[in-house]
Structures are given as structure tokens and as C-alpha cells.
Amino acid sequence: MNKELEYSFVELLEKHQNIVHKVCRLYTNNYDAHNDLFQEITIQLWKAYPKFRGDAKFSTWMYRVGLNTAITLYRKSKRTINTQDYAGVEFKIKAEDYDNTEEQQLKVLYKAIHQLNDIEKALVFLYLEDKDYKEISETLGISSVNARVKMNRIKTKLKTILNP
């Protein structure tokens, strides 16, 4: 039974792993930290999995556990010596996909987002995932009006960071 559960969980996680990677990408700056956070989210997901019921979508459920782990549970490990600029590496790999200006803009944008605090990052994350304000507010535990107001403020904040 337990093996079956383990198998179904790993299969699901493998399929939806990108969600976790995206959370890690927003909340960490280097590969080690990324892997640490991925590991921790996986453990939290696995611990909560027996209580997961099919009525919610697995991905929706993952958003919540993933963000909660990043915001509240994860303790940044001590070995966060900044080895590489994460955003920089990724963009080098994908450079050919973009024209220069767009690439440059994105790079700056990711840097700007990394400067936001944990809660703001969570809002940006859910926004980028095309979640509506109802779901954003339920995930974070704030009212949807406040979520909307805060999101607008973040947009303004990003504008100021980008165009000082």
C-alpha cells in the first residue's frame, strides 16, 4: 500500500515538477539553494500527500504547499555562498531564443523580482501562473481586495526598480 502511494506520488510530482522549480527559482539565488528548497518542498508534499484528496487539482495543491514551504517553513541553509548568478546562467543558455533587448529586459526583470520580499514574490508567482485574485487571496490568507491592491503596488514597485 505504502509503496503504491509512494509510486503514485512520485509519478505526479515528476509530471508537475515544473511548478516546484518555478517556486525555487523565485526564492533562491543559486543552484545549491534551489536544490535544497526543491528537496524541502518535496518532503512537505510527501508528508501532506496522504491527506490530499482528489477533489482539488494536484497542481493547485502543489502551489499552496510549495509557497508555504518557501515562505514559512524553509530555513535557508548556511552554505548559500553565492556561486553563480542564477539568472545570468539561464539566460546565457537561452540567448538564441531572444532578441537582445528582450533578453536584457527579462534579465533585469528577474533581478528586480529577486529584490522583492517573500510575500510579494508569492503574489508575483501566483500572478504569473494566471491565478485569479480569489485563489491568490485564499492561498495567502488575505482578502482578494487587498491582494489586488498589493499586486498593483508591486507592479509600480517593479516599474520603479526597472526605470529609476
Binding site: 509512494e6 528537496q39 518532503i43 512537505q44 510527501w46 541553509s77
Partner: peptide, 12 residues
């Protein structure tokens, strides 16, 4: 992913 399930959590 499998080995990750056996790892210890370091959560708060």
C-alpha cells in the same frame, strides 16, 4: 525524486 522522500526535513 525517490531518494528525496527518504531525506530528513529541515523545516522550521
Amino acid at each position: 525524486i525517490y531518494p528525496m522522500l527518504q531525506k530528513k526535513s529541515s523545516s522550521i
